[in-house]
Amino acid sequence: MLKIKTSSEEETIKLGKKLGSKLNPGDIVCLQGDLGTGKTTFAKGICAGLGVTAPVTSPTYKMVNEYRGELKVIHLDLYRIHEEDELYDLGFEEYIYGDGVAIIEWPDKAGSLMPDNYLDIHFQGQGDDREVRFIPQANKYIGLVAELKQDVDFNN
């Protein structure tokens, strides 16, 4: 596990950008935390790191936003999901097992449809000060988190 503190929106985006630059097709990144803890801000950074130039917004009401950068990016927000069956209608499995990078906010709503292999990221805090914890859920993400730890250059 890697724990990093950010003290501004810019630092949170910068951290997301560093992660995004290290992601590969098929990677799944899960963002967890209460409302307002920085999940979408971090997703903006991931997208920037993947070369997305379009504005990145929360997909809370649409549930899915697709972006194109160096890779296709699928940004899912499952906050409004109440039952797993809704995910079938959404095409959840096609999105997360595609050839791009999947970013999932509120992944706990996916229940048994969640894959075993993903990078779990937890956010705590409000305002500008937050703690971001990276918890690899598969061997391939252990190396990624170690690489990210070496690359982070602000004090934590």
Rank of each mutant, 00 (worst) to 15 (best):
Y67W: 08
M63F: 13
T6D: 08
P136C: 09
A138V: 00
L35V: 10
G91L: 02
R130C: 01
I142A: 06
F42H: 08
E70G: 14
P59W: 07
T6H: 02
R68C: 02
C47V: 11
F42M: 02
I103G: 02
G69M: 09
I46R: 04
S112G: 02
L19I: 01
G16P: 05
L15C: 07
L148Y: 14
E70T: 14
G69V: 08
L90C: 05
M114S: 06
K140S: 09
G16E: 05
A138R: 01
N24G: 03
L90K: 12
P115M: 00
K149N: 14
H82Q: 15
D34I: 03
S21G: 15
G125Y: 06
V145I: 14
I135P: 01
G20H: 01
V73I: 15
I28K: 11
D85P: 03
I28N: 06
I4N: 04
E84I: 13
Q124A: 10
E93K: 12
Y61V: 06
G125W: 04
N24F: 08
I104S: 06
F134H: 09
L78R: 07
H122V: 14
L76E: 11
P136G: 08
P59G: 04
R80E: 12
E94N: 14
Y95M: 14
P107H: 09
S7N: 15
V64L: 15
